[in-house]
Design a protein around this nucleic acid. Sequence first.
DNA 1: GCTTGACCTTGAGTTTACTCAAGCACCGAT
DNA 2: ATCGGTGCTTGAGTAAACTCAAGGTCAAGC
Lengths: 156, 156
Amino acid sequence: MSTAHWNPHASRRETLTIGELAARTGKSLHTIRWYEKQGLIPGVVRDGGGRRTYVLDHVGWLQFIDQLRMTGMTVAEMRDYAALVAQGKKTLPDRVEILRDHRDTVRKRLKETRKALKLVEQKLGFYSTWLETGERPAEIPTLMRRPKKPNGSKKA
Amino acid sequence: MSTAHWNPHASRRETLTIGELAARTGKSLHTIRWYEKQGLIPGVVRDGGGRRTYVLDHVGWLQFIDQLRMTGMTVAEMRDYAALVAQGKKTLPDRVEILRDHRDTVRKRLKETRKALKLVEQKLGFYSTWLETGERPAEIPTLMRRPKKPNGSKKA
DNA sequence: GCTTGACCTTGAGTTTACTCAAGCACCGAT
DNA sequence: ATCGGTGCTTGAGTAAACTCAAGGTCAAGC
């Protein structure tokens, strides 16, 4: 937008261009357009020249769906959620349900990840001790000790 | 394997077939073969018929790389790690470094995810309150209030 | 000796979430 | 009038991690 240079915060305009939205959210123009095509961004209006115009709420919205993404929600799920948002407050119960489910899913995944991390840390501890003492600290077999023969038939 | 039916735990054989390994690790045959092709599974020996034979350590190994996967390590990184493992104990320092770096990465990601989750929970709380009280609890703007006109030129 | 079940290989297909390229339109400034 | 900066659309390309299909092999039981 031509005014962007000397009016970088668009202080006296209520709408944002896609470039400004990108700058404020850290998303690329590509991504924002793609998100829109995926149905993730309701309420995008075009100006006379066919360009997208956004409002400040869109910044918050993009930030919010970014939280959803960071917690592992898929674009498909976010699309469903966005569709509900676009339908107004009558969909509040559905939205609450989705968010609750998602929260539970994330908590579960966090738990699993922490567990897996603990095991990795164990292995790390094992290796570290081994490295420090020069002695293999027993416990936690790692890999690759073969018995005598593979059991199978000979070729001829 | 022909003996699999009546000897499901292969108790008196030191090697496992790919099917047995799959059963014990929850991975599919496809995935195990693919992992091997990716260089994730050292020490796989073929029997006279060309079939892969595994040892019990492979079960532990697959479980371990599953921990790495669950904590977000990529297959490419695991390949590097596996290559070090295959080179024996002289690579211990490198392995320790990799695991340490990975641990730090995971911790960081966990932190970010928890933060994002908190924000999602905030939104959820906001919605829940709104739903219970019937009153919008102020705070946390969500989306879509438009000013009067989109600013742009008219078509003609 | 034939069927069956477990394996084999190669190569293609799938899903998710972008990311980029090409070619054109618009608008404000000079 | 034109030019640079933004923006537009369509469609293709990418990367990761599988997943599957087709067609063939092998060893054992009947």
